[in-house]
Write a protein that binds this DNA or RNA. Structure first.
Length: 490
RNA sequence: CGGGGCGUAGCUCAGUUUGGUAGAGUGCCAGUUUUGGGAACUGGAUGCCGCAGGUUCGAGUCCUGUCGCCCCGACCA
């Protein structure tokens, strides 16, 4: 019992203090270490391996939809950043400036890219002459810098890793299609690879990206009921093209401005995974992005034959394509159990003398708790690969369903402000579905009075929403056409 | 940018009230016994007490300043 108590002491309980639980996890699972600069973190090998898996899976989805990777400079001259009015107003307050090269003051200061729209635009203006040059479907993997005031590992850091897609098209229809297609790519990726269902939607006018015609987003719900914007796509129309003087000669021999999109996801996704799936024993990683899918723990490894058998299973599973680690260190078995639970490894395979005798091993699923049926199963070694594959699949599905159930349990439909206040105080944070008349005043008033802001206008709107006069704005009570998801955001 | 908390061993912290040899637990290293849920014992190494001034015979402790980190808000992927 004393041991179990100690195990619990290692990390703060999730329900007791979610914020503290989160920071405990990122440190103790060895994802990050804080650095000497506020808001900048060391991403440690285990954390970076998660990012590498995210990159690999997303990059394949990008390539499959016709995109190419490029790399832009990390510095943007002030004059270039200033070219699009809304854009600079949106980003200027949070950019870092380089003013000196060595000891020489620069003639023009350079900002460290907070995002690369301006660089892509400048480049496009140089390479696009004809409709034959379109579209360009570019993406870059890089880091960007935004001088945030409040920072949290993965969720909001001053430097973060991301990808930014920037595409340019001959027509508005094509660019809008691209914007919506990439939103689907992100949502599918979240569901299939991160096992984290998301709400697809559009941002309200006040919440749009600086310089965009429309901004789309995917919103995930964390275990504590707060929303996390997990990814975003933007349709720019031809506003940037006009500001940056990008033109092409179309088939009809007239000059036209092309239409653009951009889209991005970041290392914030890792924060989302932690808060969507983690529990009081630590991380729980979706199999597709887990650096280690199966950890093999030899039991009584000093005994003849145990380590040899464990090594055999390791190479067997590795050659079957699984990411496997054998921990043959001299820590006790119990220590290893707790360690890999903390790190969220999906499956633990135990192999000991008794198992070897019976040609079996024990496999334990990380996502299930002690009381869940099927947490621990005895697997015949003749079926090892099939069993591992089946269990990883079941775990993946289990995570998705648990996460979806959390969204469903924490999504409330409300008709007026008092209902929102009441339902949130009774049930805790979550998504509030409520109609909205479209006025910014009402949007602000809801946030001020209830604490929840508009997260998105979901793509899926209620049947007849545009014509049904029964729908009234949650704030002013006037006829409302738009269903909005409201929530507290990270 | 406002409010709060904290900087002492790798980590968590005590010591600051009342100035007087730098501490504990944990981790680390070595050895022995252990090994199916964070093992036990013995021995060992580890400190610019965030930084800079000041007061004092003497400062982790008192004074002034400064830097950084964490949490909660307002703003943002």
């Amino acid at each position: 019992m004393a041991k179990e108590k100690k195990l619990v002491e290692e990390i703060t309980s999730r329900d007791e203090d979610f914020a503290k639980w989160y920071t405990d996890i990122v440190k103790k699972a060895e994802l990050i270490e804080y650095s000497g600069v506020k808001g900048c973190m060391v991403i440690r090998p285990y954390g970076y391996a998660i990012w590498e898996n995210i990159q690999r899976l997303l990059d394949k989805r990008f390539k499959d939809t016709g995109h190419e990777n490029v790399y832009m400079p990390m510095f943007i001259p002030e004059s270039l950043l200033n070219k699009e009015k809304d854009h600079v107003v949106g980003f200027a307050p949070e950019v870092a400036w380089v003013t000196h090269g060595g000891s020489e003051e620069l003639a023009e200061r350079l900002c460290v890219r907070p995002t690369s729209e301006t660089l892509f635009c400048e480049h496009y203006s140089n390479i696009i002459k004809s409709y034959r040059d379109l579209p360009k479907l570019y993406n870059q993997w890089c880091s960007v810098v935004r001088w945030e005031k409040t920072t949290r590992p993965f969720l909001r850091s001053r430097e973060f890793l991301w990808q930014e897609g920037h595409t340019i098209h001959a027509t508005a229809e094509e660019a809008i299609h691209e914007t919506e297609q990439m939103l689907d790519v992100y949502a599918d990726f979240c569901a299939e690879d991160l096992n984290m269902p998301v709400i697809k939607g559009k941002k309200t006018e006040s919440d749009k990206f600086a310089g965009a015609v429309s901004t789309y987003c995917i919103e995930a719900l964390m275990h504590d009921g707060k929303a996390l914007q997990a990814g975003t796509t933007h349709y720019f129309g031809d506003g940037f093209a006009k500001a940056f003087d990008i033109t092409f000669t179309d088939k009809d021999n007239t000059f036209k401005h092309p239409h653009q999109s951009s889209w991005g996801v970041s290392t914030r996704l890792i924060g989302g995974i932690i808060m969507a799936h983690g529990d009081d024993s630590g991380l729980v990683l979706p199999p597709n992005i887990a650096p280690i899918q199966v950890v093999i723990i030899p039991v009584a490894q000093h005994k003849e034959g145990v380590l040899d058998k464990a090594r055999g299973l390791e190479s067997q599973l590795k050659s079957a394509g699984f990411r496997v680690k054998l921990d043959d260190s001299d820590n006790s078995a119990g220590w290893k159990f707790a360690e890999y639970e903390m790190k969220g490894v999906p499956l633990r395979l135990e192999i000991g003398p008794k198992d070897i005798e019976q040609n079996q091993c024990v496999i334990v699923r990380r996502d299930l708790t002690k009381d869940d049926e099927g947490k621990k199963s005895f697997i015949n070694l003749d079926d090892l690969e099939q069993s591992v594959s089946r269990l990883l699949g079941a775990l993946s599905k289990g995570l998705y369903e648990k996460c979806l159930a959390n969204i469903e349990a924490r999504t409330y439909t409300c008709g007026n402000i008092d209902e929102i206040i009441d339902v949130l105080s009774k049930n805790g944070d979550g998504f509030v579905k409520a109609m909205w008349c479209g006025s910014e005043d009402c949007e602000d008033e809801v946030k001020e009075k209830t604490g929840v802001g508009s997260r998105c206008i979901p793509i899926e709107q209620p049947e007849g929403g545009k014509t049904n006069q029964a729908y009234a704005c949650v704030c002013c009570g006037k006829p409302a056409e738009i269903l909005v998801y409201w929530g507290k955001a990270y």
